[in-house]
Design a protein around this nucleic acid. Structure first.
Lengths: 233, 233
DNA sequence: GCGTATGTCAAGAAATCGCTTGAATAGTTG
DNA sequence: CAACTATTCAAGCGATTTCTTGACATACGC
């Protein structure tokens, strides 16, 4: 009957999206692209794939309309297609977190997911920052900060922190954030800075969650040019 | 390095969920289970699969922790594992709706998705119902109504409407709802009832969306016994 | 117990997927 | 226009997935 055909076609279309989510590599790509658009070679490098292989995975994501691409001269830059894709990825992650004890075990082994008392939420962070009571530190890679970041955050990628300690205040608390709940950058930053005597904590969520929750004012649509790290609050 | 291992394991776990979503059949099963728990044979019948095949798909969903099962004597009943699963399915559907023009074309061909002016939202519906201004009609199959429904709704499965016209009021508007935005039951009910001169419209969303949006008071956790259709408001 | 109903498991064929390799294309630069 | 870079395409293989068939398991009624 026509109703069965209609349903079959509908679920068939949706399953193309599901199929695109069925690969570990492609999920990692989505996670990477959730932070900032990237060129193919950067995606390949970040995920440890050959360029040809990465390109093929990107075609799959593109066919499913999960990512979009733009050509810039000889290069091609990929980005998440829209915010609905980010919400889909977060929803998948939530199911994983609530259901797969394996994920829970992994998260615990890295000190993620369940926090001590010093994790800070976005709302709390906004209030503290507005009052000038804390310095907000974005410890993601520079290009991700440049693409978008929290207003007033100071960019200090986690592997530069050790050399740039003198840029950080010792008289005010520092709050570090990174990509999201499964990202370890902020945790690393906290360890390092505490060892040097700074007052520092990290946020509970990260960039991906804030973006997916739509509670965020996106700092800037057009990427800033390099070296334009925002000043401390 | 350990960081790479950690990430690989993490994405590996998440991709098990993605893999479970990669099949048209399994998505249809999730959609069916979003309305009410069901026994294996009912799922097989509703999706047009052999019982053995349906069972195998259900094992895949179970391994991914998307569904859970309970044994009742010689039968086994499956249900969505939790609300996070429903939100995942809705998120996937949203991406499909916003991104795949094929889905849009299908939806248009069935008069769904984009509405005329007479679709009613849940909030509006609650207000009208509380004021006694409308009759709310649940046109889903009886077992789905019995599992859970909007408070005060009258159950009249779409294939029973023609024989039960005398149970419906002619002096008040009727608002029909069904499974969700891709379900055609409410649309069919509206056509039929209009042809018989009733004042009738349908809701924009359906059961799945209300449940996923968590804006709903779930009528009852334990299924009611058959024949216990609620009275009209 | 023994038969029956309901689900699950196992094995095999056909189709699909993922990775590698090597070639082809598009755009840029000299 | 030739050389170069970044990316995509195509072919081939091994691994995985899906469906079918038929056997097996579990709980119930007699």
């Amino acid at each position: 009957m026509a109703d069965r055909d209609f349903k079959a076609a509908l679920y068939g279309e949706f399953s193309r999206i599901g199929a695109a989510l069925a690969s570990e590599r492609r999920l990692e790509m989505l996670d990477v692209l959730a932070q900032a658009p990237r060129y193919v070679d950067a995606i390949a490098a970040e995920t440890g794939l050959s360029v040809a292989n990465a390109s093929q995975h990107l075609q799959v994501l593109k066919d499913a309309r999960l990512v979009a691409s733009e050509r810039h001269g000889t290069r091609v830059r990929y980005r998440l297609a829209d915010e609905a894709v980010l919400r889909l990825w977060l929803a998948l992650r939530d199911v994983g977190a609530s259901r797969l004890q394996e994920v829970a075990a992994l998260a615990r082994s890295r000190n993620l997911g369940e926090f001590g008392g010093d994790a800070t939420t976005l709302d709390e962070l906004r209030r503290l920052h507005a009052a000038g009571e804390v310095v907000v530190l974005d410890v993601r890679p520079r290009e991700e900060f440049e693409y978008a970041h929290l207003d007033g955050a100071l960019s200090m990628p986690v592997d530069e922190i050790a050399e740039r300690l003198d840029e950080l205040p010792r008289d005010r608390p520092i709050v570090a954030y990174c990509r999201g709940v499964y990202c370890t950058f902020a945790e690393e930053a906290v360890s390092l800075l505490r060892a040097h005597g700074f007052q520092v904590s990290r946020t509970e969520d990260g960039w991906a969650e804030w973006l997916g929750g739509q509670r965020l004012t996106r700092p800037r649509a057009t990427p800033r040019r390099r070296g334009a790290a925002a000043s401390a609050p």
